Simulated scan of single mutants.
Amino acid sequence: MPSPSEPTGRPEGPLPLVYGPHPDQVADLHLPDREGTDPVPLVLFFHGGFWRAAHDRQHAARFAGALAQACDCAVANIEYRRVGAGGGWPTTLTDAARAVDRLPELATRAAPGRIDDGRVVYAGHSAGGHLALWAAARHRLPADAPGRTDAPAPIRGVLALAPTADLAHADRLGSGRGAVADFLGGSSTEVPERYAAADPAVLGAPAGHTVVVHGTRDEALPPDMARAYARTTGTALVEIPHGSHFDVIDPDSTAWSHITQALGTLTETRG
């Protein structure tokens, strides 16, 4: 057994990644403890918090670390500019686009030989679930929309946890005390072109296979939003009986086994 002064070959904590010049264009890369020879999948995870600066990636750090260990994968816990600190339309979206475009290469460089960049999954919770769905549907954006790409993202799919899957619906509900209007700069009647370029509910199915996980007692976003999104896009929906909005990022909740199973399905090795 190594002494405390001897290196173990594993990092003491997540590895810092910098995907842009702004202080919020960073991510923490969590790696599984095991030192196997096979590269592991990469999950690019967007935290929630109403797209607001009051909420940062630290509240999802425990979830990201636990997911890396439970699913034997690398998890990049992504920060991005948020409303109140330089974010909102279109900056939050362009940060999300820049993050998913750059982080696979940055992660493989930071952990040589440990990451399989052919098995990438976008994931996110709540407002971050919106960003994950949006990032995987950038090839469906209007021609002049910020972040648009011509080709679908080269990913296995999306794991969306209690996502804000319908921005117009969430705005009508007043979710997060007007969080959607703060994010996009108005309602769907005031800035319809922004909703057309940002709302997963109107963009269609994301690239790859998508799994939406939503609690039936979500107090922040109604499960009917997830059900409608799954119906219209043909994506898979896993409902957590009696699950709350935050159960889906709590490793100690009854939702955890559903989360790990869904991610395992997305990242499994294919011939």
Rank of each mutant, 00 (worst) to 15 (best):
C71A: 15
A170R: 06
G9N: 07
F45A: 06
P163M: 08
L173N: 10
R172A: 14
D38R: 14
D72Y: 01
I78R: 01
T91H: 08
A76V: 02
T269C: 04
P152Q: 12
L184K: 11
G185W: 13
I155T: 14
H258V: 08
E239M: 05
R140Y: 09
G84W: 03
I249A: 04
A70W: 03
V83C: 07
T189H: 12
L133N: 11
H125T: 02
A61M: 05
L263G: 10
V83I: 14
M225F: 13
W134S: 12
N77I: 00
R156A: 13
G243P: 13
V75C: 05
P7R: 11
P223Q: 12
P206A: 06
G128Q: 02
A198V: 03
A143F: 04
V158M: 06
N77A: 00
A99H: 08
V212F: 10
D171C: 10
A99S: 06
G129L: 02
R194I: 11
P154R: 15
L133M: 09
A61H: 06
A96F: 00
G176R: 05
D24M: 02
I78L: 05
R109T: 15
L106H: 09
T149Y: 01
G129F: 02
L93M: 14
T149L: 14
T91A: 15
A220Y: 09
G174M: 08
C73Q: 07
A136F: 08
A160H: 11
E268M: 10
G204F: 07
T92M: 00
A168V: 15
A135V: 02
V18R: 14
L167H: 04
V18S: 03
F63D: 00
A127H: 09
L161I: 01
H169D: 15
E190S: 12
D38V: 09
G86Y: 11
Y19K: 04
G87R: 06
Y195T: 09
G118P: 01
Y229K: 02
M1A: 14
A196V: 05
H130K: 08
E268Q: 15
T233R: 03
A165R: 03
F63A: 01
L184E: 14
L29G: 02
D166P: 08
V83E: 12
Q69P: 03
T265Y: 06
L203T: 06
L184P: 12
A201Y: 12
S175D: 08
T92K: 00
H209W: 09
L266G: 09
A170L: 14
R10I: 08
R102P: 05
D199N: 13
T91D: 02
E105A: 15
A170W: 12
P142H: 10
P142N: 12
A151M: 04
G49H: 03
T254Q: 14
A137S: 15
G185Y: 12
P142F: 05
G264M: 04
A165L: 02
A60L: 00
D252Q: 12
R194D: 13
